[in-house]
């Protein structure tokens, strides 16, 4: 049964939870969830993997289909965005493990990402250039998957520890440990590549 137009117009401003309820009744309502989240999720996938646009779109479609099928598994004690990021993370990592060869050489970090990141991992200001951006992207790719994920979620996506814990399904303590270790390891890689950091 198609959704009435009046309902469809009203849904645009509804909360995530209301959209979930509406999607369970009319699949068309799920469009609003997709519209709301497709760009942030696309950015997250790219930051995590540097996959090409086509592959990112394929993964994104899989994510939305999986989310739709599992809508009743969404636990309202969590934020809907955390739940969706969790699916995104798992799907992306799963695809990444199977298709490492499809990683795009282009840099997935924009200037804003770069500035955020550089200050968090104590990079000297003069290194915050376009050239550094590609070095940082390469260095990030050299990190183990889980370290890369916590750094992206914490310093680029701006998620707090509790949210990262919900996304990665790891205890908050583990998340904190991973972030510290990931920062250290990233600094070591950057130093090897000739980028100076300060303590």
């Amino acid at each position: 049964m198609n959704m009435p137009t009046s309902v469809s117009t009203r849904l645009e401003d509804e909360s995530d939870i209301q959209l979930v309820q509406a999607s369970l009744e009319h699949k068309e309502a799920f469009t609003f969830i997709m519209q709301r989240y497709k760009d942030p999720l696309r950015r997250y996938i790219k930051r995590l993997t540097s996959f090409s646009e086509d592959i990112v779109d394929d993964i994104l479609q899989e994510i939305f289909i999986k989310a739709y099928v599992h809508l009743r598994d969404f636990d309202q004690t969590l934020r809907f965005s955390s739940w969706l990021y969790r699916i995104t993370h798992n799907e992306t990592v799963s695809y990444f493990r199977k298709n490492k060869k499809h990683i795009d050489a282009t840099n997935a970090l924009d200037d804003d990402d770069l500035h955020l990141f550089a200050s968090e991992i104590n990079i000297e200001q003069e290194h915050q250039s376009k050239e550094f951006a590609s070095i940082l992207a390469v260095a990030l790719r050299e990190l183990p998957e889980h370290y890369r994920a916590v750094l992206v979620l914490k310093f680029i996506e701006g998620k707090d520890y509790e949210t990262i814990s919900d996304i990665l399904q790891k205890p908050p303590g583990t998340v904190a440990t991973w972030i510290n270790r990931a920062k250290k390891e990233l600094r070591t890689i950057l130093i090897k590549k000739g980028i100076e950091t300060y303590v």
């Binding site: 939305f64 289909i65 009743r72």
Partner: peptide, 30 residues
């Protein structure tokens, strides 16, 4: 085009849901 494909993700997903007769799994399944 890339832009069109991005714009159509919602429609593509809805089409796939339609074609494969997908529906949210029941609560009892979880």
């Amino acid at each position: 085009s890339k832009e069109n494909k991005q714009k159509n993700i919602e429609q593509t997903v809805l089409d796939e849901i339609e074609q494969k007769h997908l529906a949210p799994k029941a609560t009892w399944w979880f």
